[in-house]
């Protein structure tokens, strides 16, 4: 994952404890981002990025879109696979 860049020493990623640390860091970062939005509330949008659509008034809408879109895309991919998957040498036969 993208936030792993600080650690590249061999073996670091093999330890489950380190993976758990990364996950804790990710979850904390997500919570901090929601907190920032909660604290700044309605004055959150600035002159450069004014809200255009009603959904933008909803708390955490980008977080929701990010999470849901990811899950839906992956599930759609899984469904698509059942339709379009062929053996690896399909075109060579």
């Amino acid at each position: 994952m993208t936030e792993n860049s600080e650690a590249n020493s061999p073996g670091w990623f093999d330890k489950p404890a380190n993976i758990n640390r990364l996950i804790v860091a990710l979850v904390s970062a997500c919570l901090v981002l929601l907190a920032v939005e909660a604290i700044f509330g309605k004055s959150f949008y600035d002159d450069h990025h004014p809200a255009h659509f009603p959904i933008e008034q909803m708390f955490g809408y980008q977080a929701l879109i990010g999470f849901l879109a990811f899950v839906v895309v992956v599930f759609l991919g899984t469904i698509l696979r059942t339709v379009i998957r062929r053996s690896e040498d399909y075109y060579d036969r």
């Binding site: 994952m1 993208t2 936030e3 996950i23 990710l26 979850v27 970062a29 997500c30 981002l33 929601l34 920032v36 939005e37 700044f40 959150f44 949008y45 600035d46 450069h48 990025h49 955490g60 980008q62 977080a63 929701l64 879109i65 990010g66 999470f67 849901l68 879109a69 990811f70 899950v71 992956v74």
Partner: peptide, 22 residues
């Protein structure tokens, strides 16, 4: 701007969170 950076990071990190969950 604060809102733009926060919202963009929300989108990306929550997507990453979805990956972890899956």
């Amino acid at each position: 701007t604060l809102s733009h950076v926060t919202l963009q990071l929300q989108l990306l990190l929550f997507a990453a969170l979805a990956f972890v969950v899956l």
